[in-house]
Design a protein around this nucleic acid. Structure first.
Lengths: 343, 343
DNA sequence: ACTTGGCACTCGTAGACAGTGAGTGCCAGC
DNA sequence: GCTGGCACTCACTGTCTACGAGTGCCAAGT
């Protein structure tokens, strides 16, 4: 019994099932693929595949459907990422190039990805980890309220509002603020975020004790913003595609939507993309940690400019998904958005 | 035939249908409400109501279901906003008070609203229309790229990146930038956004012709940001509730999700809230302009601090919705978030 | 002029039942 | 190890029936 032909059969099953979304039987397989063997032989192979847990029958005497393990094997060994046409690549590039700022880049990326794959697209905001501080601004909002604005070289802006104990509206208060603004920028500008945080920590010493509270408050809030990496934000698009995906699983669409609302879950999904050695990570069905996503697959990858700016991006859809083309789209979009970000 | 009793019947039908999500017949109505009349009488009344287009029968010999017009009458004349308990109000206030910045306020608001109403919540970011400019920062990102940051007194930050023709990295370029930064702030700081835009328009005259390009570019981008009110952003939460809402309309959930992704549509929905005189606007079924939302209702209102800071907020759900309690939740959340924003 | 009880009628729903066909498993032969 | 053949299993479909919820209408009562 040729191992090779068995895999061919598995591949044919996956392809047919993805296309028709119906369990595929031995006869249908013969019609649609030139396997050069008879139906009975295919049946034997299918029995073996079922034995191995790669396919399963929903019920007696229906066709077979790939299991998660079957998809996994298909993705790992039976498929190649489908190359995209030159025209498609050009269209992607053109669409992304119209972006005016970082928000717009991310926005366009996520929309594009959703449209290309006709699935739910998830894009993480570029992380600040390796970025540097461009500028820090302190804006008084009232006698006891101060807004701290952190501008990063990638174009991201972080803002915090803090309550101060001393009165800022007095002449003395304003003077302190001016000094503080200058010193903070002197220490932090141009530094990497982690370094800036470290450097700011010792700033309190340079001020009189009675200004200590204000300085501590400002520095504390900056450290927060710098270290906590709070801007681990994600954007998503194409949720409507979930409803469209065949009569496949409109029943379990609820849990999926719930999972999508918990951005922490999405971040974890995209984060694990970095743990693999593969350029494109695929997580299939039960391989997903989250309970609501066990009927879905996630195709994700990294994007960004070198080691400077790294984030994740990907799509989520039913396990019955066209992996080769989806992977191609994800890869292409990641490539081009990285290029745009590099300017 | 007492007009009054007929309305009582309509109210009973709406209430029962909202609760059971099944067409309600004359008999069931008698069991659950003390109407003091017989089934036959109720039937006559129901026939009259159907004649008036207030209720309809899904098919012969099933119960009746309210029409959009029926809900409308119910909301306008047959129901009162259900007051919330002191404990609930306290819980809302406590939850919102934990917010650390504007983003967080909006985020918490939308989550809270979704959870309270068990529906899809939509919150618009506070609009800048009446706000004033706090500060403008010009940050060079490279020899030919400049980031313009606009900080508004409400705490919002807008950013744009522009390409410049002249080289900014020369000494001369930096000097121009410094001057420009000073002049721009001098003219715009403290002004209302529209006024600032007007005031900036004449700025070009103060610079040498060869700097005109740069100045024009910066001013143009600021005017964009100031006038275009691009930060008409909306956030939403609770989309998973759509799936849960009975076996009501999981069929048409697709179009709804699509509509929700088009933020322009949502903005328009919230915007029209301001056109009514009612404190809380209710748009029912076909009253919605968007085709995908004709099976849904929107309950929305304004929030913000006086005339200074006004935006919309609301929830969206199936037309079969508990209007009195939903309206109560929307009103309460709007009240408290306004209070928080007023500080 | 309403209200009421009664009654015939309509249909949607649920259950039973048989027929059909896709698909399988197995076996004997090549 | 492949192939054709054959019996078997079930899901699916369509039809038929019985049931019951609910209506519309009418004649009688207040």
């Amino acid at each position: 019994m040729s191992e090779e032909r068995r895999l061919k059969v598995l591949r044919a099953i996956v392809q047919d099932y993805v296309e028709t979304s119906e369990p595929v039987g031995s006869k249908a397989l013969l019609e649609r693929h030139q396997l050069g063997v008879s139906a009975a032989t295919v049946r034997n192979d299918m029995a073996a595949l079922e034995e191995d847990g790669l396919i399963a029958a929903p019920h007696t005497s229906a066709g077979r459907v790939p299991t998660d393990a079957g998809y996994r094997l298909f993705v790992d060994r039976l498929s190649a990422v489908k190359p995209m046409s030159q025209a498609e690549r050009a269209a992607i590039a053109r669409f992304l190039e119209g972006a005016v700022d970082l928000d717009d880049v991310v926005d366009r990326t996520v929309r594009l990805l959703a449209q290309l794959t006709r699935q739910v697209a998830v894009v993480q905001y570029p992380s600040l980890t390796r970025s540097t501080v461009r500028h820090i601004e302190l804006v008084p909002l009232g006698p006891n309220r101060l807004m701290v604005v952190l501008i990063v070289n990638t174009g991201r802006v972080e803002q915090r509002v803090i309550e101060t104990s001393g009165d800022l509206s007095t002449a003395e208060g304003e003077a302190t603020l001016t000094t503080l603004r200058a010193k903070v920028n002197q220490r932090a500008s141009g530094e990497r975020l982690v370094d800036a945080a470290r450097s700011l920590a010792t700033l309190t010493e340079e001020f009189a004790p009675d200004q200590g509270d204000l300085v501590r408050a400002v520095v504390g809030s900056l450290e927060d913003a710098l270290v906590e990496e709070r801007e681990e934000r994600v954007v998503l698009s194409g949720t409507a595609n979930l409803a469209r995906s065949g009569t496949d699983f409109p029943l379990t669409i609820g849990p999926v939507l719930e999972a999508l609302e918990q951005h922490v879950v999405l971040l974890k999904l995209l984060g694990t993309a970095r743990e693999t050695t593969e350029p494109i990570a695929v997580r299939i069905g039960h391989e997903n940690p989250h309970a609501g996503l066990q009927a879905t697959s996630v195709v994700s990858t990294e994007y960004g400019t070198g080691s400077d700016l790294v984030a994740g991006l990907g799509v989520l859809g039913p396990t019955r998904m066209d992996y080769p083309t989806t992977m191609a789209s994800v890869r292409a979009v990641a490539t081009y958005v990285s290029r745009i970000l590099a300017q």
